[in-house]
């Protein structure tokens, strides 16, 4: 590691820790390598603070705190991501209506604005809290920490976090969930895993929804599966239709609430 610019290229060592001659390494920046002086702070006008910190450290630490809180209360928590219109809310609505009364259920709803989804899900008889991100394009761990405090959920709740509809931005932000569930409808086309690979790569489970539309699209479920697995060979895939109820039991089985 070069101690001057932190570039990872081992400089040719010299007794005073100056850069060696090999400064032609591959990265773009504006500062000058041509300094044959020591990096001791008393002689170097350019003081360097070694940081080596993850930019998302604050979010990741808060997410771990959330995870610890949820584990202590035996609350299972799933981060539900996907495009707007992929069927996230419909899936949760259907799940809540069918399982309400047999298990404690709750949801945190992330949207840029409004509370339409929260109203829909509250009508199912579950505890629901709306989080509006304003200009933000994703939920973060701090928002979930605050939401958990407000909700004060009972032990052993099954909690879903419906993230802002977006196939890009929520990818990087750990919320403290047990697993990430990507809701991907066949209406979005079979090419989306190849266009938005990072989100597909980050999910543990992909629910391929609206399979009742496949005959109208002239596509097969295998065309979707192939592209999903190209990006994430370790992902689990469950295809289902909320509308017809096709294969919905596989979803309940995955959740452990069949």
């Amino acid at each position: 590691m070069c101690e001057s610019c932190g570039c990872g290229i081992e400089p040719e060592k010299s007794p005073d820790q100056t850069h060696g001659k090999n400064t032609s390494h591959d990265h773009y920046h504006t500062h000058d390598h041509d300094h044959g002086h020591s990096h001791e702070t008393d002689t170097d006008p350019h003081r360097v603070i070694e940081v080596r910190k993850n930019i998302l450290q604050q979010n990741d630490m808060t997410a771990e705190r959330n995870r610890g809180y949820l584990e202590a209360k035996k609350i299972r928590c799933f981060n539900v991501v996907g495009s707007p219109g992929s069927g996230k809310t419909s899936l949760l609505e259907d799940t809540f209506r069918k399982r309400q009364g047999t298990i404690k259920l709750a949801v945190i709803e992330g949207d840029q604005d409004g509370s339409l989804d929260t109203e829909r899900l509250t009508a199912c008889g579950v505890q629901a809290l709306q989080v509006n991100t304003g200009y933000g394009c994703h939920l973060d761990a701090g928002m979930i920490k605050q939401a958990l405090k407000e909700m004060d959920l009972p032990d052993e709740t099954l909690l879903f976090i419906e993230n802002v509809g977006n196939l890009v931005c929520p990818t990087l932000f750990d919320l403290g969930e047990e697993k990430r569930i990507l809701v991907y409808s066949v209406a979005e086309g079979e090419d989306k895993p190849l266009k938005y690979p990072y989100m597909f790569r980050s999910a543990h489970l992909c629910l391929l929804t609206k399979t009742d539309l496949l005959p109208y699209l002239g596509l097969t479920e295998n065309q979707f599966r192939e592209n999903i697995l190209k990006v994430n060979p370790g992902i689990e895939i469950i295809q289902l239709s909320v509308k017809t109820g096709e294969n919905i039991n596989a979803w309940y089985q995955w959740l452990g609430i069949l």
């Binding site: 932190g6 006008p45 350019h46 003081r47 360097v48 910190k53």
Partner: peptide, 11 residues
């Protein structure tokens, strides 16, 4: 997959 601030150079 990491994003890290490695160092800060002061004038």
């Amino acid at each position: 997959q990491d994003l890290r601030i490695q160092s800060i150079t002061l004038k």
